[in-house]
């Protein structure tokens, strides 16, 4: 069976019985020389040297997305976090803030959203109510969005120049870190209702972030959250990441967040002008 090219490769003809021996290695490496090639085992058995990354297919599709965004001059933001940090609420407040910004006479930004959840279209419905195009991806059993899904969803959206495409990933701090979607930047949310040590417990996610947003900061007076320790933990894992503190409720930090998006949007969507030419 071959999904990609539709060829009729099947298991007819000689089928080898499954080799049913387990083969555990206790953390030691060994070179191929330890294993004689099973030539002569069967006349048609052969070795194929590959040296291919397992996630190469996703990376290739992610690069196609990246090329599409570059060609169309689109800023794609991948928003990641554990469940319940306020991703959707932040996106709603971001849409409203961009609305206020354009009403105050600044250049309007076209926005679009891709929502990833295991089930339901609740989040996309929330976004559409604000007048912004949104596509819902339901991953079912999947625990992350992949580049293939994002490629299809992107093509269903109006991809106008200067678009800020916000991708809300599945609430999960492990799997989505491994899957490049072709995004321009990764934004990881970390709420003050979580433990200060989240960044060091889930280092891969925090290490991949371009921006870390410490969210729900309006709750700080009511919590024992050690803000300084949390910030230090982010810096220890990812010294290069920008850190902003934000509350979707009190709007504190919202202006800095919008500025961060605007300056990145200029660099990505209008690179010549942004470089001062």
């Amino acid at each position: 069976m071959c999904i990609d090219c539709g060829c009729a490769s099947s298991d007819n003809g000689h089928v080898h019985p499954a080799h049913d021996h387990s083969h555990e290695h206790d953390g030691h490496g060994h070179d191929h020389g330890d294993h004689p090639a099973p030539s002569g085992h069967h006349s048609s058995t052969r070795r194929i040297s590959l040296e291919q990354d397992v996630l190469a297919r996703n990376s290739q599709l992610a690069n196609e997305n990246r090329n599409l965004y570059r060609e169309k001059r689109i800023l794609a933001l991948n928003i990641l976090s554990s469940p319940g940090t306020g991703k959707t609420t932040l996106i709603e407040q971001t849409i409203l803030a961009f609305g206020r910004r354009s009403r105050s006479g600044k250049d309007p930004f076209p926005l679009a959203v891709i929502e990833g959840d295991q089930a339901t279209s609740r989040d996309a419905d929330r976004i559409r109510q604000l007048g912004v195009p949104a596509i819902q991806i339901n991953t079912g059993k999947g625990c992350h969005l992949d580049a293939h899904q994002i490629g299809h969803a992107s093509r269903e959206l109006p991809l106008s120049k200067g678009l800020v495409l916000i991708i809300e990933n599945i609430g999960n701090l492990v799997c989505p870190a491994l899957f490049d979607l072709g995004e321009s930047a990764r934004i990881v949310l970390f709420s003050v209702t979580e433990g200060e040590d989240k960044p060091i417990k889930y280092p891969q996610m925090f290490q991949s972030a371009n921006l870390v947003l410490l969210t729900k900061t309006d709750l700080l007076p009511y919590l024992d959250f050690d803000r300084e320790m949390a910030l230090n933990n982010i810096r220890a894992i990812n010294p290069g990441a920008t850190i902003l503190e934000i509350s979707s409720k009190s709007k504190e930090g919202m202006e800095e967040w919008i500025e961060w998006i605007c300056s990145l949007q200029k660099r990505v969507c209008d690179p010549v002008q942004a470089s001062g030419a």
Binding site: D4, D11, Q52, L178
Partner: peptide
């Protein structure tokens, strides 16, 4: 938990190679 996704990606790669290199079983 992401190992199942990785295993599926690995299987995708094997099925793609099965077409390109014309084999029927991975031993």
């Amino acid at each position: 938990m992401h190992e199942l996704s990785l295993a599926i990606s690995l299987l995708d790669l094997l099925e793609e190679r099965a077409c390109l290199d014309a084999f029927e079983r991975v031993q």
